[in-house]
């Protein structure tokens, strides 16, 4: 058979091939390290531990949104509504806190609200058969509007000791080396990533997500409840958006009407920078955090280099394009 000859002809070039294969399948990590080195060399402040921790904190919201978004993109869908779900969760929690609820109740209700938006997305896409871009575009408009109506179109301050604690808590630092503690928010993000990555690898749900994204028909013929799994995935995405909403409520301390708008685009950018394919079935949750880190480390460096905020937005868009273009060209190189 030709199979054995395949292996034979590949043997001589194995070692350098392996390195190249590793680099091209971990291109996000390679890009991150290269950019990190470049930024470190061109700015002294960039490498300070406190600055790195700042990046962690700045990226936390998009990184958490990115977890759910990766799952949705893996099943071949997309969720444009995460920015609105996040806003809704944060807004409702803030409202409840203002009206005297305790923090656990406020958090629970906020999370449930965002999760319901996710469930609605799932039902619209899988139940009614509306394409995901359009359905989640509808909830993007609707969820933010609904939250704004509930909030009476006004800013709400979050003044709750629990939320404040989340925002300011750090691990003990190392005074002697002038290293500050790691922010609790960053730790929450990392823990969420580790848990989700493990779930994707070791649960039946995770396996089914990859099977559905890779070939929905084949998955269905193997008895996988495709619709239910997809609806569950959209719902999970809403849940993660709710968590992101809690983090943003804690860290900004005030819910203003356009909070989180546009974050869906940065989130998708982070997922794609992490190497997850929009066509579904291929990608890893844990690589999305790399994508998010690339995005926010670049923004951070631009701020340090005193590049005006407006230009940073333009540069970010072009950076995403460049990264994806390089990845595609590398893949093409490998294929030919």
């Amino acid at each position: 058979m030709s199979q054995s000859s395949t292996i034979d002809t590949m043997t001589p070039t194995r070692l350098p091939g392996q390195v190249r294969a590793w680099a091209s399948s971990n291109s996000a990590l390679v890009a991150m390290l290269l950019l990190f080195a470049f930024f470190g060399l061109t700015s002294q402040t960039f490498l300070l531990p406190n600055n790195i921790f700042n990046i962690f904190r700045q990226m936390s919201v998009v990184a958490v949104l990115g977890i759910g978004m990766t799952l949705v993109i893996l099943i071949g869908g997309i969720d444009l509504s995460v920015g609105s779900s996040l806003f809704m969760a944060a807004g409702i929690s803030a409202l409840l806190l203002r009206d005297g609820s305790t923090a656990p109740v406020a958090i629970l209700v906020g999370l449930v609200a965002a999760t319901l938006v996710g469930l609605l997305n799932g039902l619209l896409v899988e139940g009614a058969g509306i394409s995901p871009v359009i359905a989640t575009l509808g909830t993007l408009i609707g969820a933010r509007g609904l939250a704004l109506v509930l909030m009476d179109n006004a800013q709400i301050r979050v003044t709750d000791p629990f939320f404040d604690t989340i925002a300011v808590t750090r691990t003990p630092g190392i005074e002697a080396l002038n290293i500050p503690g790691i922010p609790l928010i960053a730790i929450i993000v990392f823990v969420l990533y580790i848990i989700t990555a493990l779930l994707m690898r070791h649960t039946i749900y995770g396996r089914m997500v990859y099977a559905i994204g890779g070939n929905q028909t084949a998955a269905r013929l193997c008895g996988i409840p495709v619709k239910r799994i997809k609806i569950l995935t959209y719902t999970l995405c809403g849940f993660y958006a709710g968590i992101a909403g809690m983090l943003i409520a804690a860290s900004t301390g005030v819910i203003s009407p356009n909070l989180g708008s546009g974050s869906e685009f940065y989130t998708i950018a982070a997922v794609v920078l992490g190497g997850t394919r929009l066509t579904g079935g291929i990608g890893r949750v844990e690589k999305t955090i790399i994508g998010a880190f690339i995005l926010f480390m670049t923004l951070n460096w631009m701020t340090i280099r005193r590049i005006p905020t407006e230009w940073q937005q333009a540069a970010t868009g072009l950076l995403v394009l460049a990264a994806i273009l390089i990845d595609r060209l590398a893949q093409r190189e490998r294929a030919s």
Binding site: Y210, N215, A218, A219, G281
Partner: peptide, 18 residues
């Protein structure tokens, strides 16, 4: 290819899918 296999999953995952 369209109804039988999930091409990007490994042999093991395809074998145990049902």
């Amino acid at each position: 290819k369209t109804e039988g296999l999930v091409l990007n999953l490994d042999v093991r995952a395809n074998l145990t899918l049902p």
